[in-house]
Design a protein around this nucleic acid. Structure first.
Lengths: 231, 231
DNA sequence: GGTTTATGAATGAAAG
DNA sequence: CTTTCATTCATAAACC
C-alpha cells in the first residue's frame, strides 16, 4: 500500500522559500455555486474562503502595521464589514485568519537560540542562493540541546534508540547548512505582547525575507485624533 | 484519482498578479498574463525539499513501524536533527512530511469507504434533520452592530478611521501586492490588555449562507478510482 | 511533447 | 491559545 517510489536523487540543496498565492476567486455576490447547482451536491466545490488580494492586504496591515493581533468581536465585525466590498467574507473568516496567523507566527518564532557557535559553523550557502544571498531562514526551535553531536537526542519516546541505530552510518552527507537568522521584529509593538509561554513551534520559518525590511512606519497618522492608539 | 480541473497555472513568482477580486473565476480562472515568457528572472528555482533515500526510510519507519503519526515539536526537532547528516532538512520539512502522509492515508481510507457506500443505496438526505441554519455558532457577538447602514462601525480603536481611509473608495487594484508571509514578530500576547476572555462566541455565522448541514452527509464518489491497493 | 502522479507546502477551519 | 484535520496549490518526477 504505499507506493512510495524512491527517488534516488537529491537535488535541491538549498533553502527554499516560496510563496504561492492562489488566485482568489470570489465574487462579492453569491458564493459557491460553481458547477453543480442543482445537481449532486456531492462536490463541496468551493467552500473555503480565500482572501482577495485587497482583503489580504488590509488584514495584513492591521496585523503587522497596526499590531492588531487579537481582534475582539466588535473589531472582527467591523473588519468584516469593511472587507465585504472587496469580496465575500464572513466574520468567522476574519476570526480564523487572525487566529491562524498568530498561531503560525508564534510557532515560528520559538526561540532564536544561539547556535552554539563553537567555532565551527554556520556556513552559508554558497552557491545556491541566487544572488541576493541573503536569506535563508532556518531555525531550530527547541534545541534540545543535549547532546547531539554524537547523535543522541531524546525524543521521549525511545525514538532515540531508534535513531541511534540507524544513524550509525551517515553517508550521504551533503551540505549542512544551518544558520540562525532573524532577529528581526518588525513592529515594535505595543503592549499586547507578553509572552505566552507558548511552548513550542513546529517548523521553522521558511519564508521570510522579502522586502520586508520594515513595514512599520508606514502607517502613521491614521488616527484623526491622537487618541488612543492601539489597544 | 482526483480529476482535477486542469489549469495551467503559470508560474508565479512570488507575488505577482493581482486581480480583481470580484470575478468569479471558477474553473477557468485563467490567469492573465502570464506573460512572462522570458521574464521574471526571479524564480525560486530551488524550491522544494525532497527527502533523500535514507531520510525517507527513517521517516517511514517512524511512521509505519513506530506508529508515530503526530510528532510534537520536540520530536520533530529531534528527528530533524538526526536526519540532517543525511541531507539538508529543516524542521518544517519533517512537520509537513508527517502531516501530509497522515492526511493522505486517511483520505484514502475515506475514499474507499465512500465507494462502498455508494454501491449500496441509501441516499441521503437527511433532510429531516434540521436544515435550518441551526448551526451558526453564534450570532453577532458584540452586537455593536447597529449600523450597517451607514457603515460606521467603530472598532473602539480608531480602526474605523483606518478602514475608512482605505475603504473609502475601494478600488482594488492597487499596486501593492503584499504577499502573505510574515516576517516575524515577537508577539506573545497572553492575555494582558483587555479582553483576555476570548472564549466567547467568536465569529458569527451571521449572514452566511452556508448550508448547514446535517451530519449525515453522504458523498458518493464517482471516482473510477482504480485506486490504490492499500490494504 | 503534453499529461498524470506523487508529494511538498500553504492555509482555512476546527477541535481541544 | 495550541494542535490537528482537510483542501488545495504547485511542481518535480514519472509516464505515455
Amino acid at each position: 500500500m504505499e507506493p512510495r517510489t524512491l527517488q534516488l536523487m537529491d537535488l535541491q540543496t538549498q533553502q527554499h522559500m516560496e510563496l504561492q498565492q492562489q488566485q482568489p476567486t470570489e465574487g462579492g455576490g453569491s458564493n459557491q455555486a460553481a458547477g453543480s447547482s442543482a445537481n449532486t451536491p456531492i462536490r463541496p466545490t468551493n467552500n473555503r474562503w480565500a482572501p482577495t488580494p485587497a482583503q489580504l492586504r488590509i488584514l495584513q496591515e492591521l496585523y503587522y502595521d497596526r499590531g492588531l493581533k487579537n481582534p475582539n468581536p466588535e473589531q472582527i465585525q467591523g473588519i468584516c464589514l469593511h472587507l465585504k466590498p472587496y469580496g465575500q467574507i464572513e466574520n468567522k473568516n476574519v476570526f480564523f485568519w487572525f487566529q491562524n496567523l498568530k498561531a503560525r507566527e508564534s510557532q515560528k518564532l520559538k526561540e532564536i537560540r544561539n547556535v552554539r557557535v563553537g567555532g565551527s559553523l554556520d556556513l552559508k550557502f554558497g552557491s545556491t542562493s541566487s544572488t541576493d544571498g541573503g536569506r535563508s531562514i532556518d531555525l531550530n526551535f527547541g534545541s534540545t540541546d543535549s547532546t547531539d553531536d554524537d547523535g543522541s537526542i531524546d525524543l521521549t519516546l525511545g525514538l532515540q534508540s531508534f535513531m541511534e541505530r540507524r544513524g550509525g552510518d551517515h553517508q550521504e552527507v551533503e551540505t549542512l547548512p544551518l544558520f540562525p537568522e532573524h532577529g528581526e521584529n518588525i513592529l515594535g509593538n505595543p503592549k499586547t505582547t507578553s509572552e505566552g509561554g507558548s511552548s513550542f513551534g513546529y517548523y521553522s520559518g521558511g519564508s521570510g525575507g522579502y522586502n520586508s525590511g520594515s513595514h512599520v512606519s508606514l502607517e502613521l497618522s491614521l488616527n484623526p485624533s491622537g487618541a488612543a492608539d492601539l489597544a
